[in-house]
Design a protein around this nucleic acid. Sequence first.
RNA 1: GGCCCCUUCGUCUAGAGGCCUAGGACACCGGCUUUUCAUGCCGGCAACACGGGUUCGACUCCCGUAGGGGUCACCA
Length: 510
Amino acid sequence: MSASGCRVRFAPSPTGYLHVGGARTALFNWLLARRSGGRFVLRIEDTDRSRHVSDSLEKILADMRWLGLEWDEGPEADGGADDAAGEGDFGPYCQSERLAIYQEHVQRLIDSGHAYYALETPEELAAMREQARAAKTDYKYRRPDPLPTAEQAQAARDAGRAVVVRLKMGDTAITVMDDILGEVTLAADQLEDFVIQKGDGWPTYHLACVVDDALMKITHVLRGQEHLMNTPKHIAIQRALGFDTPHYAHLPIIFNMSGSKMSKRDKEKALKRGEVPPEIDVHDFRVSGYLPEALLNFISLLGWSTGDDTEQITLDETTERFSVEGVGKGSAKFDRDKLLSFNTDWAAKVSEDRLLECFVDYLQVNGSPLAELPEATLRRMLELCKGFRTFPDVITKIGFAFVDDSAIEYQEKAVRKVLEKNDGAGYAALRNVVICLESLEPWTASAIEAELTKFCEANDLKLGGVAQPLRVALSGGTVSPAIFDTLELVGRERTINRIKQTMMQGSEQQ
RNA sequence: GGCCCCUUCGUCUAGAGGCCUAGGACACCGGCUUUUCAUGCCGGCAACACGGGUUCGACUCCCGUAGGGGUCACCA
């Protein structure tokens, strides 16, 4: 796209957390704005009060910020807006605060003969649809003739009936010029007079969206392909109102590996089956210990590619390379394995400071007491667990170092294999090594390494012969970071204590 | 069902008529490294949905078929 200074928008409905599909849409819009030196507008589409979920605006803003997709205009914008509200020059940016604007435009359409009052109730409409379905014919709303007058509409309202406003569709086909899909034409007989103002006086999505895009001077609309069939309606409204039509680009839809649409439903279903629910919302990935860098990078490659063999690139590099033309037409499946791989690589790649920052966020968002650990300790944990895939792996691997000695659970399998096998060779190793450890000075990884190496030579053991028993003694299982570092981190006192505790349990059983 | 969109390895994709013996990444399989678990390194398996055209030549262009998806609300 050669256009410069694109004004784009991301327009979520406040119905919960930000969905990954929405995040991809937000990202592409953000990318286009940054790439063209334009503005990224965040607009909240909350015209349906019945669907409103409390807190969801805050949640969406938090998710956007976590991803690093800052918006220039919109609620709590930090784009340096100089208007009173600090949101931007074309606010308000929540549709719930723009009712008068919509009603004014609806009135204009009525006055100009482009729209009319319609008196059918939802029940009547549903019955007509049902009738058509039973007769196996296509239902299409038929424009009343003559049209209800303003007086009739008022009389209906006075009688307690809700009155809607519909837009008159012309009798010519409408062609969408899509920057990804090309020309898409919808024949005139496929278009019907649709509702632009609901019975409660609020605009429908179509009207609000078009009016806002025009008033907010949006030049490019990037949205999901599920909106493709809405676009002719939007173009019709634009024409009736005398607005310019922005560029449109409909992004391919993101699916599950199973081929179904990714939805919150998946979480409920998994829960019902007693499975771990899959991450669907951005917040889910945050809680599961993914890095924003990895999620963003992975998501950017859903429907778009760098054009060469490079895949792992920063947001800045993505911005440099991104173009709407480079977006593919086909839908994409969300491959969690690949995301996991990306996360592993990003965790190994970002700076220590950044990794620490993300780790702390992970711990906090999960309400973990480990969040209170000294920074140096958290850094050490991260360093010892290098190669981890997501943050929970770190806890799994080294979390035992931060619990009470009495909380260690000894895994039966590990005890049998590492301690009891060969006439209790593991116990024997522990019994002997604990003596060396008790007097070792200083208690550092290198000193421990020297001591254990010496110990192995003296006892004709391989390192594993003592490292594994120590692992079981300290953690209850067979997995930990390098044994010397682990001992250092756990500390002498607790190391000795856990070894003795292990031996005691062993002798009880014998 | 009507309309619309889509179709390269299992998955994400590169490919814009000869560069293709179709490239990369994830997954998978095998090997190496290793005190455990990971990580890392090396190697391997694996695709142009099908059928017609057009062309000296089609993964690339056209038509059809099949399959997948979207949409048909006073929800966005």
